[in-house]
């Protein structure tokens, strides 16, 4: 269909990098989101305030800016932090680490809301029952809330994952050789922008489609034994 002029392998390599980046963001972002939700629902006012600020700021600034600021700003901050801890020398984030950090912060901000909603969706009665048999709050969270959280949060997290897969394209601007950057390199070499950006689009659509099928299966599995939950 397309004449990729030998750049096909490069595009596939780029797509692999895109998938790796997206999966890393999913892992780190989920942890951030869980922490954010716990903070938002906590009794401590400073924790709630910190979490509110985090979600408001990260959801209101373009992802492109966040990626750029983390990449260029992190080394100064990290080096200062390391020096404060008595470590001299230079620390920095590679484009991959900076990309994961930036997109995870964004993912976490949205996931905070997803998890908050999911925690609130767990019937009060279950928590009261657990408290009644003598579980402390920690144990209630670990044994009652957390295991059920996934089922409720899965559709929301799935959507966020689809969004962040596309956001990985922004990491191309800080030099990570993922799919979009590979397509841009190929365009520069061959002067055929439509061909390569369309090829990249097809690869993104493939990644999206596979993810959608995977999410569908995961949702089915998560809601097994819950006949009312099936669509």
């Amino acid at each position: 269909m397309f004449d990729l002029k030998g750049f096909g392998d490069q595009l596939l390599l780029g797509a692999l990098m895109t998938v790796g980046l997206a999966l890393s963001v999913l892992c780190v972002g989920t942890i951030l989101g869980l922490a954010g939700a716990i903070a938002k629902l906590s009794k401590s006012a400073p924790a709630r305030f910190a979490a509110e600020t985090y979600t408001a700021v990260l959801r209101g600034i373009p992802e492109l800016l966040i990626v750029l600021v983390i990449y260029f700003g992190s080394s100064g901050l990290l080096t200062a932090a390391a020096e404060a801890m008595g470590h001299d020398g230079f620390v920095e984030l590679s484009p991959f680490a900076a990309g994961v950090t930036a997109l995870s912060l964004v993912f976490g901000a949205y996931a905070t809301e997803v998890f908050r909603g999911a925690i609130l969706a767990i019937p009060k009665g279950q928590i009261e029952a657990a408290r009644a048999i003598g579980m402390n709050r920690r144990l209630v969270f670990l044994r009652v809330t957390l295991p059920q959280l996934w089922r409720v949060a899965l559709p929301g997290l799935g959507n966020l994952f689809l969004v962040s897969q596309k956001d990985t394209a922004l990491v191309s601007v800080i030099g990570l050789e993922e799919l979009t950057r590979k397509a841009a390199f190929a365009t520069g070499f061959t002067k055929a922008p439509f061909t390569f950006y369309m090829a990249a689009a097809v690869l993104y659509l493939t990644i999206t489609s596979v993810t959608m099928v995977g999410l569908h299966l995961a949702e089915r599995r998560a809601s097994r034994g819950m006949p009312g939950m099936r669509g």
Binding site: K166, D167, T168, A169, L170, S172, T180, A183, A184, T187, P193, F194, Y197, M198, A200, A201, Y204, L205, T208, S209
Partner: peptide, 15 residues
């Protein structure tokens, strides 16, 4: 299903 960045490049440079 595709990144906005790719869509912009397709419209501007691609077409």
């Amino acid at each position: 299903g595709t990144p906005l960045l790719i869509q912009i490049f397709l419209v501007y440079y691609g077409l």
